[in-house]
Computed example of a mutant assay.
Amino acid sequence: MKPILHILICSTRPGRVGPAIAQWAQQAALGNDKFEPQVVDLASFNLPVFDEPEHPRLQKYQHAHTRAWSASVNAADAFVLVLPEYNFGPPSALLNAMNYLVREWQYKPAAFVSYGGMSGGLRAVQVTKQLLTTLKVMPMLEAVAIPNVGQHLDAHKAFAPNDFHASSAGVMFDELYRWTQAMKPMRAPS
């Protein structure tokens, strides 16, 4: 059985390009043939600013939105975060979603497909990597960065990758798979 890969659309704002990039990432993952890739849209969970009365490590969730988010993160063996850069950092919706959970994230690798202006979202990735490590997530070095993302969208706002994006994705998925396999025993019940 192939590991389950969640390709997480991290932006929730109207008019975002994350869904188009996530669809491309899913197709690239299918072509890599190591994962069972599923696109997960953070916006679909409608998470308010963290509103659970108990600490997330206790997993005593009071709200349906938290239970749904918990089940989604728990089901994944690995993640690809489709991540824009907002004001030199990640979107606040992602930071909020990360804070909702603790145990569900642990001992899983995460790779990044980032996009933005000149930096291609790399500054948002750097901030997110630091935060993920506190949840015991292993962030990958190998990634896909998409600078000047608007130049890679067609008239229908579909993502039109170049050869560099495709080759970077192949390397990223290969390395993500290695870490997914290596971390699997760490997620086994002890």
Rank of each mutant, 00 (worst) to 15 (best):
A22I: 09
Q23M: 11
Q23A: 15
Q26N: 09
A28R: 07
L30Y: 03
P37K: 03
V39Y: 09
V39K: 12
V40A: 10
V40W: 07
L42G: 11
F45L: 07
N46L: 14
L47N: 11
P53Q: 04
E54H: 13
P56A: 01
P56L: 01
R57K: 12
Q59D: 14
Q59H: 11
K60I: 01
K60A: 10
K60Q: 14
Q62T: 14
Q62E: 15
A68M: 12
S70P: 06
S72H: 01
V73I: 15
N74H: 14
A76Q: 02
D77R: 08
D77T: 06
D77I: 04
F79M: 00
V82Q: 12
Y86W: 13
Y86N: 05
F88G: 04
P90N: 04
P90W: 07
A93E: 06
L95P: 10
A97G: 07
A97D: 08
M98K: 09
N99A: 11
L101V: 13
Q106P: 00
P109Q: 01
A110G: 07
A111H: 10
Y115K: 03
G117K: 01
M118F: 13
M118A: 14
S119Q: 14
G121F: 01
R123K: 13
A124L: 02
V127T: 10
L131Y: 08
K136V: 01
V137L: 08
M140W: 03
L141F: 14
L141S: 14
L141T: 15
V144F: 04
V149S: 09
V149L: 01
G150D: 03
Q151C: 06
A155M: 04
H156T: 12
F159V: 00
P161C: 06
P161R: 06
P161I: 04
F164E: 08
H165D: 15
H165V: 03
G170M: 03
